[in-house]
């Protein structure tokens, strides 16, 4: 049996010099404020992926009026993504702009939560996803309004009004579908159960969060966790529904380990820039 090559002294010393981080941890690279970039990508990717999902509904919603509602939310989200990703590129300082980040990263480098990449399913599932996300995003932005990062604070201040509307609209639909007909109730129950699995991730924190909180840039999501569940429960009660059973948290989005869905989302979204690498649009 062939033997392994000997370990050379230079290999040993290089291994000692490596920082104690894993393959998917933010890399401390010289001069780049990695945690801030990571945080901005999380904010931007959440909005981008959810905006992309909502765009899939164009032209096939139950009434023309609802088309306008959904397009409204999608537009707001794309707007948020553009600002957050643009800033991420600036902070990173490696010449990547918002488009470069949106259209040329693969799944391992996306930082959205798993909730936003879930498939649309039927309208009930889409509204369940929206309700669970927007309720959280509104509270997040309320906290981020006092971020010490100027751009984050500015986007949060503007977006918090938009998101309040998203949350209300989604809650209205959760209520009407929950307390509508037997069929709509069953579908809303399913939709909530599907997406409920990804709520715990919204309240998971890691090194990036801790550093952002310490620097006054990021929000401490645990501070509004109780309010979140109380708010959600209120709406569910009005919808004559119960919160789905909790299960083991499904995590990974914040460090690039997504569900099977993100790859497909990116294949569609990124096709043109990747197929025509020298082109601008």
């Amino acid at each position: 049996m062939p033997s392994l090559p000997p370990i050379r002294p230079e290999d040993e010393s290089r291994a000692r010099r490596q920082p104690p981080v894993g393959a998917f941890d933010p890399r401390p690279v010289d001069g780049i404020d990695v945690p801030l970039v990571e945080y901005l990508l999380r904010l931007g990717d959440d909005s981008l992926v959810l905006g992309q999902r909502l765009s899939e509904w164009t032209g096939v919603l139950p009434t023309v009026e609802v088309e306008l509602s959904i397009a409204n939310i999608a537009l707001d989200l794309i707007g948020q993504a553009t600002l957050f990703l643009g800033r991420a590129g600036e902070v990173e300082g490696r010449g990547r702009d918002g488009d470069r980040l949106a259209f040329h990263r693969d799944v391992l480098d996306f930082r959205n939560c798993l909730l936003v990449e879930q498939p649309n399913g039927d309208f009930a599932r889409t509204m369940a996803r929206q309700f669970l996300f927007s309720t959280w995003q509104k509270m997040l932005f309320e906290h981020l309004m006092s971020s010490s990062d100027e751009l984050i604070a500015a986007v949060a201040a503007k977006a918090v009004k938009e998101v309040a509307y998203h949350q209300e609209l989604a809650a209205d639909w959760v209520i009407r579908l929950g307390d509508g007909t037997e069929e709509s109730r069953a579908r809303m129950k399913d939709g909530l159960a599907w997406n409920w699995r990804f709520v715990p991730e919204l309240f998971a924190q890691d090194e990036v969060d801790f550093e952002m909180i310490e620097r006054g840039i990021g929000a401490n999501v645990l501070a509004f966790r109780d309010d979140y569940f109380r708010g959600v429960q209120e709406v569910l009660t009005e919808a004559t529904l119960e919160a789905p059973a909790d299960q083991r948290p499904i995590l990974g989005g914040r460090t690039g380990h997504h569900s099977e869905h993100l790859g497909h989302i990116l294949s569609t979204m990124q096709f043109l820039p990747r197929a025509y690498p020298e082109a601008t649009w």
Binding site: T63, E65, V66, S69, N72, E168
Partner: peptide, 20 residues
């Protein structure tokens, strides 16, 4: 005008349609 099942949704539809 807009079509809506009730007043709350009507306001939202009206906002999305006429005051964008």
């Amino acid at each position: 005008s807009v079509h809506a099942p009730d007043g709350e949704i009507a306001v939202k539809h009206a906002r999305d349609t006429y005051t964008r």
